[in-house]
Every structure is written in structure tokens, then in C-alpha cells.
Design a protein around this nucleic acid. Structure first.
Lengths: 112, 112
DNA sequence: CTAAACCTTCACATCAGCGTGAAGGTCAAG
DNA sequence: CTTGACCTTCACGCTGATGTGAAGGTTTAG
């Protein structure tokens, strides 16, 4: 399929897809006319990326997951690099939550 | 005092001070040579801005506080506009905390 | 054959809060 | 007179993930 269909099927813009390619997260074969050609596996790749972004991952964070899927694994999260990223993300989120709660308390204290 | 001293006394860069001025948060008299001239009240203004930013306010958020101080109030938080911003900020922070916790849960669920 | 609907590659714009020079004026000390 | 430490006004760079044209080639349906 071409980029427009992949965009529709994965729910992202064509611009985003080209961006993922530019960042090395997505690869495309090229047709004789220069058009990008994708297959079903690419749909899953993009969905994986979006699912990760939905929980706060950056494209950089998603990289090992994509590599894991490309390596033939059924899930992008089974590779050790992915696990590392998940752990890092969890501590990042926890830190952020603690920071926000501290700020909240600080604001309430100031207000009294 | 000039910008360098204000910077030292309030703990920010001269660049930041010029930025605050550009954003309309800080006003400066100008000496005959074109140099910015500040007084004690400006030190308090900048400290107020930094205190607000420390708890997650943007410069835009800080605007009503600065106006409130300029209006002669001893605290920047006593004006109704400031109170509004504080309330908005609290709900923003609460929303963000809830989002982060939801993401955390989502990540943990995916991992099992 | 033509117009719509695709596709291509640049490349600047956005949001925030500055950092970091560039190029140059001012002023006190030695 | 000359450093050197100030100050001035531009104006681009950074981070992330696209949005938004520009300018043009391709394909497809009628």
C-alpha cells in the first residue's frame, strides 16, 4: 500500500509517517515511480509507535520496540532494550508525579 | 541599579531579564546612555516571577501576579486574576497527575 | 484529455524560555 | 590611551513532533 492508505489505516498523518522514516523508525520500499510502498507489518509498526507515544514515550524511546518487532518478535516489549526503556520510563513518570505533587503542595501552602 | 546587578541579586541571567521585559513582565527606566535602570521593587518582581516558575507557572501565568504587585499590593496573589490563575493551575496539575498515573498503570498492564 | 487525488522533496513555522554569539557603544581604572 | 567590564540591539539555535505550504510529478476515473 502507499503512504496515504497506511496513514488512514494507522490513524496518523502522512507527514508523521515520513517523519518516522526520517528518524529511522520506519522503512519503505520504493515503487518505480518513487512512491513509498508499505505492507501489513508496517501497519503494526506504526500502531506500536502510536501506542507507545500514547503512554508518553518519545520516538527515541520507541526505537528499541520497533527494532524488536523487526527482529521477528511478536511483541516489541520482549527485548531487553525495550525492558530497559520501560523501566526508565516508569521511574521518569514516578519522578514527574512526585514533582507535580510537591508543586501542588507548595502552591496550596503559598495560598494560605 | 543596572541589569547586571539585578541579575546577580535575583539569581537570573541578564538575558532572562531582557526576555521578561520583552514579554511585558518587567519595565525599566533608561539612563542617559541607554542603560536599563532598576530599583528595589524590581528585585521583588523578579523574585516573584522565579518563585512562580519554580512551581510550574509560565511567564504568561505570572503576568497577573506582577500586575498585582505593581498595583501596590504586598502580595502578588491577592488579586482576583491571580486567584483565577492559581485555581486553573491547580486543576491543570491535578489533571496532569491523573494522566501520568493512568499512563503508569497502562504501562504496567502492558508489561504483564 | 483533463481534473481530481495521489505522490515527491524541501524547508520554514509552532510552543517556551532562554543560551549564545555578533557587532558595537560606555565608562572607570591604571 | 587602553584594557576590561559593563551595557546595547539583533537574531539564530535548541527540543519534539508534526503542520503547512510550495512547486512539481503520477495515477486514475470519467
Amino acid at each position: 500500500m502507499r503512504i496515504g492508505e497506511l496513514a488512514r489505516r494507522s490513524g496518523v498523518s502522512t507527514r508523521a509517517l515520513r517523519h518516522y522514516e526520517e528518524k529511522g523508525l520506519l522503512a519503505a520500499r520504493r515503487g518505480a515511480n518513487g512512491y513509498r510502498e508499505y505492507d501489513e507489518a508496517d501497519v503494526r509498526l506504526v500502531q506500536e509507535i502510536r501506542a507507545l507515544m500514547a503512554v508518553g514515550f518519545t520516538l527515541e524511546d520507541a526505537r528499541p520496540f520497533v527494532a524488536c518487532l523487526r527482529a521477528g518478535n511478536e511483541s516489541g516489549g520482549v527485548c531487553p532494550e525495550s525492558v530497559d526503556v520501560v523501566r526508565r520510563k516508569l521511574t521518569e513518570i514516578d519522578t514527574e508525579i512526585r514533582d507535580l505533587m510537591a508543586r501542588r503542595d507548595e502552591m496550596l501552602r503559598r495560598n494560605t
